[in-house]
Design a protein around this nucleic acid. Structure first.
Lengths: 241, 241
DNA sequence: CGACTCCTTATGTGTAGACATAATAAACAT
DNA sequence: ATGTTTATTATGTCTACACATAAGGAGTCG
């Protein structure tokens, strides 16, 4: 039966790769494809699902990116024994994070100074001896309550404009992402004991555990900035999936 | 040799979507496509790059998933003003995390008990009044040194097998991922003050800041387990990109 | 002016077909 | 037995083409 234009009628009866994905995920999580199962080949599956191999390939690839499948040439597609658990945090600018909760964002510059980089900073960022840095302390408020204390160092060698820039009205982060948008970044999450600065500006007692995010960024192998974001009491960073 | 198979000579001269991606990313980060730029349409780009639109589409889609591009039908493809910063952590089983560093993994069950769920746990996980839970304390070692203290609660109502299971030889996590592999998960990162248990088993003084990961999991809307993973002094969770 | 319709356009996705490549398995030689 | 080559096979990717869909913009009408 030589095929005639499949284009004839309207409504897609084609199986979309999203439908295929959903079905595959369901078969893995609830259905017959338990951990360790070796799936049939793409060609066979495509036939069974009534779609082209291209579509099946895309579906399998994306399910695999979700962490459920392990694919290898020749070896085939296998359901992982345990799915890869991945926590993915989008790190918006503080302003966006606060405004998303419906709160009013507030900003205040606490202190600003140009200093010679201290030893630990030089080692951490790979700065030259006697390199000058801009050191800023800033506060971010949610509905008038201190939400985050930003302790930032900017390498004046790499970004001399930072020396002239005025940070009293808006934070250095917004200026930096506009100035050096595509930098290499290293992010760390850690717990720190509250120091004097955090006690003074956040709702902490000296030595309290503080959840901190540290972000170091480089641009073309030159250190740009190092920032530690200290959060208010009880802050937790959460993701669900 | 009659056959002219193009495989004979040079490497494929087809432009692969990875090459295209690399070029696009470079044009964004270093080249002429600064933040806000509206890119030419897929057809035009494909022609310029000497590839098919399919390939260009894939390249653009993946670059967009990296957070550099914003794509909308009809509106076109635009370079984001600031790339979406995303921290992505793969959360392997502790054993794998430790062995990846080359250290020898060690495990020890500290305590095990079946108790009625305390109030806060009932609220946190949505358990019924007087629900029974298994409460475990376990230690994970790297080269003999305590690395992580696992404080785990398992809902015996949803997983009665947990009552019989023996956790003296291997941790509850490995048993759980094998038993309930595909659960819904909520992960939080937070800073906590060291309590008596952490002081006893990790290298902490009372009240020290401890970096903790809390993971709650459900399966088909029933609470399965809640675990708090307390880390050793100075631990930080890092990602780079 | 404002709200509505319709057209256009760029991306989104599906299909068939072909070749590329990695990795296993089988055949072979040492 | 062991190491090496060769064949096989499942996934990976490219191509050309077609239709689907969202959304901007022009034109229309009250």
């Amino acid at each position: 039966m030589p095929d005639i234009t499949r284009t004839g009628t309207a409504k897609t009866e084609t199986t979309t790769f999203r439908e295929v994905m959903a079905e595959i995920v369901q078969r893995i999580t609830e259905g017959p494809w338990g951990p360790g199962t070796l799936l049939p080949g793409e060609v066979e599956l495509a036939e069974a699902f009534g779609c082209s191999r291209t579509t099946m390939n895309r579906a399998l690839r994306e399910v695999s990116e979700l962490g459920f499948l392990d694919r290898k040439r020749k070896a085939g597609t296998r359901v992982r024994m345990a799915p890869i658990r991945q926590a993915r945090f989008e790190m918006p600018v503080v302003r966006a994070e606060i405004e998303k909760t419906g709160a009013v964002y507030g900003y205040q510059l606490v202190s600003s100074a140009v200093v010679v980089a201290p030893e630990w900073l030089r080692l951490r960022m790979g700065l030259k001896a006697r390199a000058h840095v801009v050191h800023l302390l800033c506060l971010h408020f949610a509905d008038g309550v201190a939400f985050q204390l930003e302790d930032r160092w900017i390498n004046a060698g790499a970004l001399p404009q930072a020396l002239q820039q005025d940070f009293t009205e808006s934070g250095p982060n917004e200026w930096l992402v506009a100035t050096v948008p595509f930098s290499e970044v290293e992010i760390s999450f850690l717990a720190q004991a509250a120091d004097a600065g955090m006690v003074a500006h956040l709702d902490h007692a000296l030595g309290d555990p503080v959840f901190c995010v540290e972000r170091a960024t480089w641009w073309q192998n030159a250190a740009v900035t190092l920032v530690t974001l200290a959060h208010r009491r009880g802050y937790r960073m959460t993701t669900r999936y």
